[in-house]
């Protein structure tokens, strides 16, 4: 549970002249070295510079979760991350979840449960769900965790836990019940 150092392979002297920098992001296992405007977010880097449009732009302000990706294994809103500040980060997007043409178990569960309608929030839901599974395993509590629960060890993901933990991912179609079921399937 001790926070780990945020030190990264790409860490180096940080002075950047002007308003652009060259940086390296490891996206889905591949290093990409890019020269980017400092204003460019990780989300726009993925979508506009790398053609990885799986992460979605729903609000661009961290209010909907459609842009959720995993950064060094933890879920984050990529719309609020400046790419320059993520130099050296390991980023996993929905495109990088399947391994050897086999879908990630949570992708399978979403299909099995039909846990999507328009599909626009889905990549963020799936990345967020994977983050939730990891966080629960690592003992991170949520607002739904009883204050009397043990402070170490994995948290069991019941429906109330999943609903609370997934509340950063809005779905306007109302696919929530099935999203919760899909994550529950993989958790158990």
């Amino acid at each position: 549970m001790e926070p780990t150092s945020r030190g990264r392979s790409g860490e180096g002297e940080g002075r950047a002249a002007g308003d652009r920098s060259t940086l390296t992001l490891n996206i889905n296992g591949t290093d990409h070295t890019l020269t980017l405007d400092h204003r460019t977010t990780v989300l726009d880097t993925l979508r506009l510079h790398l053609g990885l449009t799986g992460a979605k732009k729903g609000c661009d302000h961290g209010q909907c979760g459609a842009c959720t990706v995993l950064v060094d294994g933890r879920r984050a809103n990529s719309c609020l991350l400046l790419a320059v500040a993520q130099d050296g980060a390991r980023i996993t997007t929905v495109e990088g979840l399947a391994a050897d043409d086999r879908l990630h178990p949570l992708q399978e569960a979403f299909l099995e449960r039909d846990a999507l309608q328009c599909g626009y929030c889905t990549p963020g839901q799936i990345c967020s769900g994977i983050g939730v599974l990891g966080e629960a395993q690592d003992g991170f509590p949520s607002h739904a965790t009883a204050p009397t629960a043990p402070v170490t060890g994995p948290v069991a993901l019941d429906a109330a836990e999943i609903r609370e933990r997934m509340s950063g991912n809005l779905c306007r179609c109302g696919a929530y019940p099935r999203i919760v079921e899909a994550i529950g399937d993989v958790a158990s």
Binding site: L80, G131, S142, H143, V151, G168, N169
Partner: peptide, 26 residues
């Protein structure tokens, strides 16, 4: 999530968990 916060300062842990979303808190 820090055990010392959860055991000794539960108000702080609860306040943090009542705020924002999992992604933002990360």
């Amino acid at each position: 999530a820090h055990p010392a916060v959860r055991t000794r300062y539960p108000a702080l842990s609860q306040a943090l968990l009542a705020g924002a979303s999992g992604q933002l808190r990360n």
